[in-house]
Write a protein that binds this DNA or RNA. Structure first.
Length: 172
DNA sequence: TCGACGATTGCC
DNA sequence: GCAATCGTCGAG
């Protein structure tokens, strides 16, 4: 069952850890399906969060994060990797969950490569998309045990924001 | 228009 | 340890 809008309408600090164990589904042009079990995510929350791209304000790049929950926010990093995020919360409040890893594929850059992401996915609605969405994991009965840590690669955000334990990982 | 830089990865 | 590689953004 595909995750509905209201799953993503919550605050990112609620939705992000809840994505652990869920199934990321990609349908390619040839109809082939790729299913990845999410096991690592990070939360980015508001313009005040100096680790969040929205701390630079609403721009062409960050506009997707200001949309309602459930949309895709993808962006090119280091000129070669497309990173995948899902927006959360309400319209006007910039939030997103970065998909950092799955059981099958480790690393946000490798996830994007496996899913063959590009800019055409920017702002796509995962609730209605024919090519990328998230499903509930029917094989998972209990909530998985979650480990938290500081987010990766945002030391520039300063001690206050880089130190927040907004990275969520599970072993499954 | 120009230059710096990044929520990364893989090879030296 | 560091190069690859390019869209975005702020400075000029």
């Amino acid at each position: 069952m595909r995750l509905p809008r209201n799953f993503f309408s919550r605050d990112v600090l609620e939705a992000a850890p809840d994505l652990l164990g869920k199934i990321l589904v990609r349908r390619f042009d040839n109809g082939e399906l790729l299913r990845l079990t999410i096991n690592e995510v990070e939360a980015y929350r508001g313009e005040e969060d100096l680790g969040c791209h929205a701390s630079k304000g609403r721009t062409k790049r960050t506009d997707a994060m200001y949309q309602r929950g459930g949309l895709l926010y993808v962006y090119l990093i280091y000129g070669m990797y497309w990173l995948l995020n899902f927006t959360t919360g309400q319209e006007g409040a910039p939030q997103a969950v970065l998909i950092r890893g799955s059981l099958e594929i480790k690393g946000p850059g490798r996830i994007g490569r496996a899913l063959r992401l590009d800019k055409s996915f920017y702002r796509e609605d995962s609730i209605t998309s024919e090519r990328l969405w998230i499903e509930k994991n029917e094989n998972l009965s209990e909530k998985p045990e979650i480990i938290t840590s500081p987010r990766i690669g945002i030391d520039y955000a300063g001690e206050h924001w880089a130190g927040k334990h907004w990275r969520f990982v599970t072993q499954l």
